[in-house]
Nucleic acid binder design. Structure first.
Lengths: 242, 242
DNA sequence: CAGTGGTCTAGACCACTAT
DNA sequence: TAGTGGTCTAGACCACTGC
């Protein structure tokens, strides 16, 4: 096949191969034509197909072994990864067709508390900006957010009163972060949480704990407690993620 | 710098750049040296640095614009993705130092039930293998699993009685799948779940719903109900995932 | 318009390994 | 040992776009 469309050749090759993999036509373990075969098939130089295959290997879609050839990857069953989407709450509320609401419950400048390892990971003797706020959808409570911001890393946060704009939204726009970690669990709402969320004590809630760093500097730690029935997370997996 | 080590030049270049990004030395938005500059710095041809930068761009770590240059990516705040690890339950139990246990509660060959959209997505008039089983850690219930397997896609499943080996483990080893989707939520345990898990009715549980396909063919649908206190999911984010 | 990336060539030598 | 990938070269032309 010659390059009939306006698309660059390498993109066409990549598209063809990815299509065969994603459609299942080439199942995991299937052997992909060699660089030489593809070079002949597409009438191009070896570097062109090599770059395509190297990228697919880099993305984890294929595995390459000298002398043996290139093969469609098997999803690794033991330490599997899926792409989990954790959007900013106002965005996701709007995306689901609800009216977003926000209420600041507490704003406090203090030192890190003893017995709170999450806070201790932030600047230990530095000051922390502690916030408690509520996210609402169509006027009804959706999530309770408890957040601490490391003032040493984000001094600009002191200028913000967070009365109108949720701290998460502000941080995401303002502070470039490089690393984050999440922990997802389920809890029965305690007295404080049930009061804030206006549900019965013991209601199942989905909890997201999130740490964010910029390089080695901690930026923020947040715990978001969602009504389990009203919120969920969706993750997908396809070869190569993304 | 000349190539002092045994490492291929492109890997060294990539390592240098990735190091600068992951360490935060080059924060999001930072401009990366041009291909020409890197070519001079490393004393190599342009193709070598181009391949490195193209791969980093493909991995989402950098963004490239003609005439403007290459820049460290900003994590996208709105539709952000994190890598969520969802290992096979026996593996994760063992990894946490517990003794894994398994009990098959039910095994049934039947048609898909009306009013169950998850089952209807599987082969509609085909037969389904419906399983209910329990995962235990140190002899105590950890998760209740309700699974249906599409017999049309996985006929070998009929030969398995799943009395000893968990169906998830067997499937992951046996059936090559190409796509999966997960939904994570929190529920209060109902009568069935609380009985199986030996906890009080209403206990908060973490629920993972998972669909798996091979190409366009559905393979299996499973709902795993975990004790919220005993299990959690961890996700991380770093530039370029992986 | 000049600098940047995007693509591509037609070779080369080497490393590894399945047969 | 022959086939495969891994790496690299020294150019080339083009497309775009910010200065």
């Amino acid at each position: 096949m010659s390059n009939s469309g306006a698309m660059p050749l390498n993109q066409r090759i990549r598209g063809d191969i990815e299509g065969n993999i994603r459609s299942g036509a080439w199942p995991p373990g299937h052997r992909i034509p060699s660089e030489h075969a593809l070079m002949v098939e597409y009438g191009c130089s070896r570097m062109t197909v090599n770059k395509v295959l190297a990228m697919l290997a880099d993305a984890g879609m294929i595995e390459r072994r000298r002398r043996a050839g290139s093969f469609v990857s098997r999803p690794h069953p033991h330490i599997e990864q899926v792409a989990l989407e954790i959007p900013d709450i106002p965005i996701v509320v709007a995306a689901r067709g609800h009216v977003y609401g926000y209420r600041l419950l507490q704003r406090q400048l203090r030192k890190s508390r003893a017995g709170h390892p999450q806070e201790h990971e932030l600047g230990s003797q530095d000051r922390l900006l502690a916030l408690q706020c509520l996210h609402l959808a169509d006027g009804r409570p959706l999530a309770l957010e408890q957040r601490v911001i490391d003032v040493a890393t984000v001094p600009e946060a002191l200028q913000q009163d967070f009365g109108v704009l949720a701290p998460g939204s502000w941080l995401l726009r303002t502070v470039p972060w490089t690393r984050a970690q999440h922990r997802i669990s389920a809890v029965n709402a305690d007295a404080t949480q049930s009061a804030a969320l206006a549900v019965a004590v013991g209601t199942a809630c989905l909890v997201i704990d999130r740490h964010t760093w910029r390089g080695e500097q901690p930026v923020t730690y947040v715990r978001q407690v969602f009504l389990g029935e009203a919120y969920d997370l969706v993750a997908r997996f396809a070869p190569g993620l993304r």
